[in-house]
Design a protein around this nucleic acid. Structure first.
Lengths: 345, 345
DNA sequence: CCCCCGAATGATAGCGCTAACATTTTCTGC
DNA sequence: GCAGAAAATGTTAGCGCTATCATTCGGGGG
C-alpha cells in the first residue's frame, strides 16, 4: 500500500493506487505533461521526460485506461467474435489476430458465439460498449439488429473465413464453394466416381455447407452425384467422423471415395478404415478439409485442402489497423487455399 | 446517423451516438433513473422501467462502459493470460472460463504470453490498466515486477494448471509431480522396466518438467531409472513426437516403454510405431499426458492421464466471481486427474 | 535590443456515467 | 386520516484522464 500525502494540512491520506496527478506532482510537472510522456506524445524535453518516467517507476504507476478511453474516446481495443473454441481452426485465427495486435499495443476482447447469430448480437452490443476501434466477426450471418448496431457505430469491421458475399467493410478468407468445386474436380480427375459424404451439423457450420454445394456442382458437371451421405449432430470431432463413416458404410452403397466436412471428421474416418481393415485409397479413398497437422502425421497423409487460418487472422487485424475510419469501399481479401494431395485420395 | 436536438435555440446538433442523457430525456426521467434501469438496479416502477427501455430501444442506445467503469471503478472485465494458443489445452481452459463468465455478463480480456514471464509482465500491466476485477494467470512463474503489480492492485488472482506451490490467491489445477509419480507406478506395476522418455522444450513447459521429476521419483523407488531420453526444440506437436521417437529408438538402447511429455507427442510416437511396423505395447508401450480426443480415437486407445482443462477454467472463473476482494487465505483447488489405461501401455 | 517563431509546458473544461446522499411519493396499519 | 416506513426518483459531485487552446521560454535575425 502506497502512502501519498495530499494538501498542506498535514493529514496523510492513504491511496492504494497512484494516479497520473501523483506522478506529475512527484516529477514536478503538470498532469498533462506527465500524460504526454506516458503516451509518448508531443515535444517533451529530455530531462522532463526522464523525471516523469522515474516518477512512474517509483510509484508503480499504471494508467487507468477507462479514464483514458473516456477522455479520448479511443480505446486501443479490438473486439473479436469467434463461433467456437472447440474447433481448432478458431484458436488459429485468434493466434493470427493476436500476433498482429500485440505488435501495435492493441488488446483483443474475445467473445464466443457458439455459431448463434443471436448470441453474436448480444456480444456485439457488449463489445461496442467498450468503444473498440474495430470488430472482427466470423462469416456473414448476422441478425438485422447486429447490422444496425454496426451501422450506427461506424467502427471498422472484418468478416472472416468467407468471401462469397459482400462484406460490411473487409472480408478475409477463402471461397468455400470454390474449395468444394476443387475437391470434386480433383477426385473426378483421379478417377473416382462413387462419392460418399460425411458431414456434421450444418446449422452450426454454414461454410461446410458451401463446400458441399461446390462439390455437388463439380459432380453434376460430370453427370455424377453423391451416392450416400451421413450427418452427425453437433460439432465435428474425430470420434464422430469415425462413427459416421461406419454408419455410412453400413448403408451398403458401393463407394470409392468419401468426402468429409473437415479434417477432424476425415481423421476419424481414416481411423475407422484402419480398425476395419480397409485399405485406404485402394478400398476407399478419403478427403478432408482444413489441412490440420494430425492429417499430415497419419501413416497415410490425409488428402485435404489447406487453409491458412493464422494468416486470415493476422491479415484481417493488420488491415483494420491500417485505417481507423471505415472506408466507403468494401475490400475482399482472398487468401486462397491449397489442395494437398496426400495418400488417401 | 441519429439527429438529436439540444437546447431550445432551434439549432440541431447531430450526434452519431446517443448517450444515457438522451435516453433519459426521451423517457422523461433523470439520467440516474435511466442508468438504474439499464443496469437493472434499485427499485424502479414498472411503468418507468418500460418507458426507459422503450427509449433505449428507439435510440439504439449502447452504454459507454469506459465511462461506467470510470465512475463506478468496476469493469466487469476479467484479464486472462494463457501461455499459448498452439497447445489445444489452453483453448479448452479458455472455453471453461468463457462459459463461467458469459453466464454472469463478464468479459474476458485475453493475452498470450508465449511462456515468457517478461511478456506476461507486460500483459499484466496493460490488463491492469483496464481495472479488471480479476486476473487469471497460468502457473506460478512470474517476475518480481509482476508480483509487485499484483500486490498493489489487490484484484483477485487465479493461477491455473498447477497446485504445488503457494498461490497468490487461488490456484486451480492438479499436481504434476503426483501425475508423473502415478505414471511411473502404473507402468512399473504393469511390469515395464526399461523406460524411455520423449519430451519437448522444458524452458517453455515447466509442468512437463514436474511430471518428469515425478516419474523419475517413482522409478527411483524401485531402483530404476530412465534409460534413454530425447528432447525436441519448441512447442510439442504430433510431428515432433513422431520424429523424436524415431531418434530415441536410433540410440539403440533396449526399451519396453516410452513416456511422452504429452499426448501430442505420444500420438506422434504411436504413428511412428505404426509406420515402422512396431507392435504397440508388445514391442513398445507408450504413455502420454492430457487425455486428448485424438488419443482415444486411435486404433489402440492411448494410455494417458486425463486432466479436465475445461473444468479448471470454469472453476477458476466461478471461484473468482464468488467474492470481489482478495481474501486473506489462499485457496488451492485440486481438480485431480484420471489415469486412463488404454491399449498402449 | 526587440520581435518573432517554434519548442516546451500549462490551465481549463469536459468525456459519459454512477456513488452517495437527498427528496418526494406511495403505501401500511391503526 | 395520519405517523412512519418503504418505494421511487432526483441532485450533486466527481471518477482519472486528455483535447483544446493558451502561455512561457529561449534564441536567432534584423
Amino acid at each position: 500500500m502506497l502512502a501519498l500525502s495530499f494538501g498542506g494540512d498535514g493529514v496523510e491520506i492513504k491511496r492504494s493506487v497512484p494516479r497520473l496527478a501523483d506522478v506529475a506532482r512527484l516529477a514536478g510537472v503538470s498532469p498533462i505533461t506527465a500524460s504526454r510522456v506516458v503516451r509518448g506524445e508531443g515535444p517533451i524535453a529530455q530531462a522532463t521526460r526522464q523525471r516523469v518516467l522515474d516518477a512512474v517507476q517509483q510509484l508503480g504507476y499504471v494508467p487507468n485506461r477507462a479514464a483514458g478511453a473516456l477522455a479520448s474516446s479511443s480505446s486501443k481495443l479490438i473486439g473479436v467474435l469467434i463461433p467456437s473454441l472447440t474447433n481448432i481452426v478458431f484458436p488459429d485465427v485468434l493466434r493470427g489476430i493476436n500476433v498482429a495486435l500485440a505488435a501495435s499495443g492493441y488488446q483483443a476482447l474475445v467473445g464466443v458465439t457458439e455459431y448463434d447469430p443471436r448470441i453474436e448480437q448480444e456480444i456485439v452490443a457488449s463489445l461496442l460498449a467498450w468503444n473498440p476501434e474495430a470488430l472482427i466477426l466470423t462469416g456473414f450471418d448476422h441478425t438485422d439488429a447486429t447490422r444496425r448496431m454496426l451501422d450506427n457505430h461506424k467502427v471498422r469491421i472484418a468478416e472472416l473465413m468467407e468471401i462469397d458475399e459482400t462484406p460490411i467493410d473487409v472480408a478475409v478468407g477463402l471461397s468455400h464453394p470454390k474449395a468444394g468445386l476443387e475437391i470434386g474436380r480433383h477426385l473426378i480427375a483421379k478417377g473416382y466416381r462413387k462419392f460418399g459424404y460425411v458431414g456434421h451439423d450444418w446449422r452450426a457450420d454454414r461454410r461446410s455447407r458451401l463446400r458441399y454445394d461446390g462439390l455437388r456442382a463439380a459432380l453434376a458437371d460430370h453427370g455424377l452425384g453423391i451416392v450416400a451421405e451421413h450427418y452427425s449432430e453437433g460439432p465435428s470431432s474425430i470420434q464422430k467422423g469415425r462413427q459416421s463413416l461406419a454408419s455410412l458404410l453400413e448403408q451398403g452403397r458401393e463407394l470409392d471415395v468419401v468426402v468429409f466436412s473437415n479434417d477432424d471428421m476425415a481423421v476419424g474416418g481414416y481411423l475407422h478404415c484402419v480398425a476395419a481393415g480397409l485399405a485406404v485409397r485402394d478400398d476407399l479413398a478419403l478427403f478432408g478439409f482444413n489441412g490440420l497437422e494430425i492429417g499430415e502425421a497419419l501413416p497415410h497423409a490425409l488428402s485435404t485442402i489447406y487453409s491458412d487460418r493464422f494468416r486470415i487472422g493476422k491479415i484481417a487485424a493488420e488491415k483494420l489497423l491500417e485505417q481507423k475510419s471505415r472506408p466507403a469501399e468494401q475490400t475482399i481479401i482472398d487468401i486462397g487455399f491449397v489442395l494437398r494431395e496426400g495418400q488417401t485420395a
